[in-house]
């Protein structure tokens, strides 16, 4: 197993290099550079050239790339054109918010999706399964931003159970109990909105896995041993069906990213997705570049996680 993980990690390296190259090239095509917004319009061209020389902007691309990468490794994503402050500082707080939102969404996805998938698979073609399956079709068909709007309208405005924007109520002492509760309160509705759409894949996948596993020969063996139905499900069917779901965990992270971009915007939740759209609107390219890099990294790490988890839970891979 260790060999597998190490090998998998080695494969990840070139992926990351490719990603960074791609992001770097993309960034160099964008109008403006690190000096944009830093200098007044009346600075003369000689001075500008001098500054460019100083900042290494006249160096060949690979030197620039190296400098950029070295900076990224130290957490330096450059300076925001608009706010005239390090991009990393702008992103940091947003990132923490997004991580919380993703975590809450993930918890909802699994807390709701796994039982739904289990019931649907176990009682397939019964009424309860038809209800759940219909829901998943609906979920597949509904764009997340429409569903987010509906959730906001119902949960936030009509019922008034949840706040309609922000990540915390203003005026609370950070670290206090009220502050934490308010944070959680702000997370629930967007988290749920993401989860209710995000879980359909998990539900359908788990359902078909269970229906598949139910017909395997070793299930007959288990019954022939005299195992009661509940035990057959718990010990044999469930474990063997959940395995691929566990492996999907990493990819789930990737799909969450696209979810948060829209949901954060709708709920005006100050996270990375929200920042991403904002930065595009105001053409804050350093921030956009940094975010693309981070999103890309998250996707690569997600895939990596998936493979590692699979190698841990599946003995057929583990032993090799």
């Amino acid at each position: 197993m260790w060999k597998f993980i190490v090998r998998r990690l080695i494969i990840t390296m070139p992926q990351i290099v490719l990603l960074s190259l791609f992001v770097f090239i993309m960034a160099s095509f964008m109008p403006g550079d690190a000096l944009t917004g830093q200098i007044g319009p009346d600075v003369d061209q000689d001075r500008l050239q001098e500054l460019r020389e100083q900042m290494g902007l006249n160096n060949p691309w690979y030197i620039q790339y190296r400098d950029w990468i070295l900076g990224v490794f130290q957490g330096d994503f450059g300076t925001s054109f608009r706010y005239n402050m390090p991009a990393s500082e702008i992103i940091q707080q947003r990132m923490i918010n997004t991580i919380w939102l993703s975590l809450v969404s993930l918890i909802f996805i699994y807390a709701l999706g796994i039982p739904m998938g289990l019931i649907s698979g176990r009682y397939n073609d019964k009424l309860i399964d038809q209800v759940i399956t219909s829901y998943t079709y609906l979920g597949f068909a509904t764009p997340i931003f429409i569903f987010g709007l509906i959730a906001l309208w119902v949960g936030g405005f009509q019922l008034g159970w949840f706040p309609t924007g922000g990540s915390v109520a203003p005026g609370l002492e950070p670290g206090s109990l009220e502050y934490i509760l308010s944070k959680i309160h702000h997370l629930l509705l967007p988290g749920l909105a993401i989860a209710l759409i995000g879980l359909v894949g998990t539900v359908q996948y788990l359902r078909s896995e269970i229906i598949d596993t139910k017909q395997k020969d070793f299930i007959i063996t288990a019954r022939a041993k005299g195992a009661p139905e509940q035990r057959v499900y718990n010990r044999h069917i469930f474990r063997n069906s959940v395995l691929p779901i566990a492996a999907f965990f990493g990819y789930e992270i990737t799909s969450l990213i696209s979810g948060t971009v829209f949901i954060e915007q709708i709920f005006s939740y100050p996270g990375m997705g929200n920042l991403f759209l904002e930065s595009i609107n105001i053409r804050d390219y350093t921030v956009v570049t940094a975010l693309v890099l981070l999103f890309g990294l998250a996707a690569i790490i997600g895939a990596l996680l998936s493979d590692i988890i699979l190698s841990i839970v599946d003995p057929r891979i583990r032993i090799k």
């Binding site: 395997k216 020969d217 007959i220 063996t221 022939a224 005299g226 009661p228």
Partner: peptide, 23 residues
Amino acid sequence: MNKLRGNEISMIFQDPLTALNPL
């Protein structure tokens, strides 16, 4: 029936590859 199966009556299956839980 579960008290009998695997106890007083038991069964050997055709395909030993698929009749055992792989995990």
